[in-house]
Design a protein around this nucleic acid. Structure first.
Length: 278
DNA sequence: ATTAATGTTCAGAA
DNA sequence: TTTCTGAACATTAA
């Protein structure tokens, strides 16, 4: 679930570690298969030890620690990862512990139930190359309708599928794609190259509105309760969802038609057939 | 007891 | 070049 609003909430939640010095780095006892940390733990640890954290950034769905030698630690939650500064949901899924000094916060944690998340250290130049426009699109929080159109207008895929392509636009995932399309009244199977300028304008407005509201509510905690903020508290935006995971329920917008679930690119898509016509 | 589904990303194939 | 498929892993529901 961690999509742009959840990852931005994590970022804001750990801003208190800016200024801290890294005193120790270790993998806590964890019965699960270890997550991917690169370079290998010994080197990773040496790269971090003694460095000061001078900023926390976000790149798409990743939290990035900026160190005082301009190198970066990229924490990628993928499906179930969390960046925390308090006690984690379980000890069994605690994947990395970064101990801090000269700071009110004494530990930065990476917790991940499924373990698909990754953590990478990169030099400044490696980071610049890995996250250049060649590999990742502009941030979804920072676009106007023309930029949005230019991200997708050449594609012949369904708009819902294309919205998940981080090379075109960074930050949107399965949940927010559904909510944004609903608010913009665009059918998820509409081909990108068939959207009108009017529809791109509505998409840009809906995207801005959904993402900023979701950040304000600190993200969406779904039924399984996996996502939490940096203090291990639930998000609140799930109560604002209009279509996501609501198949069979009456559409909250038109109050007439039932929300449908279809499968696109092996993922669930939810939409209202009355509000969102092809 | 199997099997399917779950928010994401990437390599490799079509 | 673009797009699709399957795999990485753990847990829950059917």
């Amino acid at each position: 679930m961690p999509e742009l609003p959840e990852v931005e909430t994590m970022r804001r939640g750990v801003l208190g570690v800016v200024g801290a010095t890294i005193a120790n780095v270790k993998r806590p006892p964890c019965t699960k298969k270890p997550i991917s940390i690169t370079p290998a733990m010994g080197t990773f640890r040496r790269k971090l030890l003694g460095k000061q954290i001078i900023d926390i950034a976000r790149v798409g769905k990743r939290v990035v620690l900026v160190l005082d030698d301009d190198s970066r630690v990229i924490m990628e939650p993928r499906m179930t990862g969390l960046v925390l500064i308090t006690d984690p949901p379980t000890l069994d899924h605690l994947r990395l512990e970064i101990q801090l000094e000269n700071c009110e916060v004494d530990t930065l944690l990476f917790w991940d139930r499924r373990g698909l998340g990754t953590i990478r250290w990169m030099s400044a130049s490696e980071f610049d190359e890995a996250f250049s426009r060649k590999h990742i699109g502009p941030d979804a929080l920072d676009i106007d309708w023309k930029i949005l159109r230019d991200c997708f207008a050449t594609s012949r895929r369904a708009i819902k599928v294309a919205l998940l392509d981080q090379k075109r636009l960074a930050g949107i995932g399965n949940l927010y794609a559904a909510e944004i399309l609903h608010l913009a009244k665009v059918h998820p199977e509409k081909e990108c190259d068939e959207l009108t300028a009017h529809q791109w304008k509505k998409m840009a407005t809906a995207m801005q509105q959904v993402l900023t509201q979701a950040i304000r509510y600190e993200g969406s905690t779904l039924g399984d309760g996996t996502y939490r903020n940096a203090l291990n508290q639930d998000g609140g935006y799930q109560s604002k969802h209009l279509v996501y995971a609501k198949a069979g329920e009456v559409c909250g917008t038109c109050q007439k038609e039932e929300v449908l679930r279809i499968v696109q690119a092996q993922r669930s898509t939810f939409y209202c057939p009355r509000c969102q016509k092809l």
